[in-house]
Each structure stands twice: as C-alpha cells, then as structure tokens.
Design a protein around this nucleic acid. Sequence first.
RNA 1: GCGGCUGUAGCUCAGCGGUAGAGCGCCUGGUUGUGGUCCAGGAUGUCGUGGGUUCGAUCCCCAUCAGUCGCCCCA
Length: 445
Amino acid sequence: MSENKIYKPKQISGFPEWLPEYRAVELAWMDKIRAVFERYGFCSIETPSVEEVDALLAKGGETEKEIYTLTRLHADDHDKDSRLALHFDLTVPLARYVAQHCNDLVFPFKRYQIQKSWRGERPQKGRFREFYQCDIDVVNVDGLPLHFDAELPAVMFEAYQSLDIPPVEMHISNRKIIIGYLQGLGVKDIPFVTRELDKIDKIGVDKTRLILAMHFELEAQELSSRERLDLAQKCLDIVQIQFADNGFVEKVRTLGVANDLLDEGLKELSFVMDNLKHLPQGSVIADLGIIRGLDYYTGTVIEVRFKDKPLSIGGGGRYDNLAGAFINQKLPGIGVSIGLTRLFAMLLDEGYIKPVAKCPTQILVVLPAEERRAEAAATAHSLRLRGVNVELYHSATKVKKQMSYAEKKGIPYVWFPPFEDGQPHEVKNMATGEQVQADPSVWKI
RNA sequence: GCGGCUGUAGCUCAGCGGUAGAGCGCCUGGUUGUGGUCCAGGAUGUCGUGGGUUCGAUCCCCAUCAGUCGCCCCA
C-alpha cells in the first residue's frame, strides 16, 4: 500500500462483528448463560483456539470437516505449524482435554465452555465461519447416570429462558430408537438412511420416500418395487412421530417392529421425558425425527429451535465413548451446546434485539474550562470511588458539544463541576432533564 | 467445490453512453455555561478491480475479486 492509497475496509463474510450497543447485549447474554451453568455446578475451562489437525480428525471419521489450518506468512515448505488448526467445535477439544488431564480432574467432570469455533464452510443465512458456542458437558469414567440426560436439557432450557428471546422448543429423541428400528426392519445401510431421514424437512416426505426406495433397489435387496416403497414408508413412519409426552411409545409399538436396541431407546427416552415434566407444557417434544449428523452420538439427542422455524439454535446429545481416540479408557458423556452467534444474529436480523447504551458510562463529567481540569478530574475520581462508571470529557469545548456527546452515547447523567469558584456541583438526569445540586463525595445513582 | 443474484457517498439506495444524485448520518452556525426538536449552511465518492467496444463508459462486453442466496454439510 502506498501512502495515498488506503485499504478499503470491508466485512469478511462469515465473520460477524457488532456495534457496541449490540455487543453489550451479547455480553450480557453470555453472563446470563454462564450464571445458569454455574448454578448447576458446571466449572469453566478454556482450551486453545487451535488443536493439532490429527486431534481434530481423530473422531471425525468419514465426514471431513471444513477445517482452517494455520500457516505463518513467512513459512517455508517445512512449516511445522501447519499441523495446527482452529477447532470446529468444543467437544473434540474437551475430549482431548479430559484425556490429557484425566488424573487431575474430578469425575463426573462437569464443565462449561463459552468460546468461538471456526468452520471453513460457505457462509449463508444463519451460518458463520466464526461463531460462539456455549457448551456444557458431563464426562464420567465408566457409567454416566441417565439422570444427566434430563438435567442437561433442563439446564440448557433455563439458559435460553434467562435471555429475552421468543420461546424455544426442545426436540428430544434417542438414537437407539431409530437405529434399533431400522435394524429391526432389516435396513442395511443405516448411515445413509438416517442421513436422508434427517433431511426430510428440507426435501419433503414424498421425495425422501422415493430416494429411499431407489436406494433399497440399489442395495439389491430381494424386494418388489411395492415392498421397497413400503419399507421406505416404514422408515418415514417413525421419524414423523412427535409427542409432548410418553405417547410416542405406544405409537412406535403400533409400527410392529421388534428390536432390543429399540426397546432400550424407548425406555431411555421415556425416562428423560418423565424427568423433564417440570418444564413448561409444550416446550419439550419427543421428536423421533431428531437424528443429528454427528457420528459420535449414541443415545439421547437434543435439538433446540424457535417455534415454526426449522433452523437449529442449539443441540447436543450423549456419546458413549468421547475420548476413545485419545485414551484407552471408556469415558461416556453428554453435552449440549447453545449456538449463541446464530441465535443472536438471527434475532438481530429480525430487529428483535434492542440496542442498549453505546458505552457503560453512567456519568459524563463536563470540563467547564481548561483552568478547571484538575477539579473536574478530581470529581470524576471521587465518583469512581463509589463504583460509578465515569467518563471525563477531555476537551474544554462548548458545553453544548459535551452534552451532545453524552446524548449520542446514551450516558444517563451529566455532571457539572463548578464553572466558577464557590459555585456548587450540579448533576443532570438526561432522560428527565432534571438538574440538581450534588456533592461528588456522596452522590450515588 | 458448484449454481442464481448483487457491487454507486459512512449507511439505505436512485440514476444515465457524454466523467453523479436523494434520504439518513456527519460537521459548522443560530453569541455570552446545558443535549434531544427546529432552521440555515457545509464536507464526502479512483460509480468493486483489470481489460475490451466506443470520439467518449459508472452505464455495453469479458475477466477478476468481494458480498449475498441456495446446493453439500452443519451450531
């Protein structure tokens, strides 16, 4: 860049940033979420933004994530940092962390983690390349009581409720149900079928039925085309079951599939639903169409949405063997995650989030004149001693301009030190316009 | 990685083959120590970038970059 050429600022797609009056709201949300997490005894950890690529891929399996790797600008061909990459979620770092500090952690290990993650996917509405996730997970050695499967959704629900947002719905299922059911039906390629069933909302029922039927044909199962369609229909039947109570069990029974894993899943989901009865009616739905793409979920799966909106704003589930790729020990866990950035951006876009003051300043101390600077500074200092957020205007410009500054930044009070010797201090409430005499050594908001 | 749409003042956008406008915002003033309203002035743009057609392009063509929506996948 030459000196008379400026770099034109531009926004980088998928990397959101907010103005101060909105960032303050986001921060407040994090505080509220954090408070709920801590109320249930979760402790905080922070892991590095980067992990080794091998660590990130250890659990990924077939689906390769869009991972951002690190390189130095001046790296040579043998750059060692290229083995590092930004984490794409907080679960894999947790697995590595738990495996690494296994001996120093107390189990069941309950931790929360509010950090950014990065994914190199094409950004679009509600999808970012850099975003905050608020995770809570419980990891244990050996078994993990099923009660956690109910507690975590409850904690997450309470966190959502602590925010000023439209009501959310938690859709809960158990992977054992769909897997067991498909096994019972004799379906061979279960990963493919579940992936298609997961997309049913987008693709539509009829199209999904055809895709499945076609797939069964390719699998060369000894079925007539009529039977293939019936089988596809059977697959569709289960994922369309939704109940606000345990009615789903009976409904599944009427489909007439017998399988041990299916029974286990039904039992677990019933247990979870029973233990979430204290939540508001209609906010928890046993939704057997919830499958979730992540490979490591093995039991309970959760997805959170606003009513009437398909986009997920949070989710999670149980994994029987979280850290298996890092340690020779079985560590089951369950975790849920609030998609803070997606949630926030969505509501911001809809104009639902109202901006707050552009700064935390509570009082602006006016600088009446250059000769009064020492006194104005002392006034500001005195007010700060009582925990008030005070800003001192550093230029002895027109009072009009100083007040306009306070107005624009949303500062609620303006303090006037004496303009001449012997005069009293005064403070003005910008909202009401009321102005009274005050003593900076005792005044409080 | 692939496809559709878009790219003009800080923001939202209008415009036209002959080198540009509105609204909002911003700055100044409406006198001597007081904001929000009102009034009067004012500043601002290599018209995304690079080529091409043309006497001449911001407007036409090509490329490129960026944004955006969708596919894939997912919070």
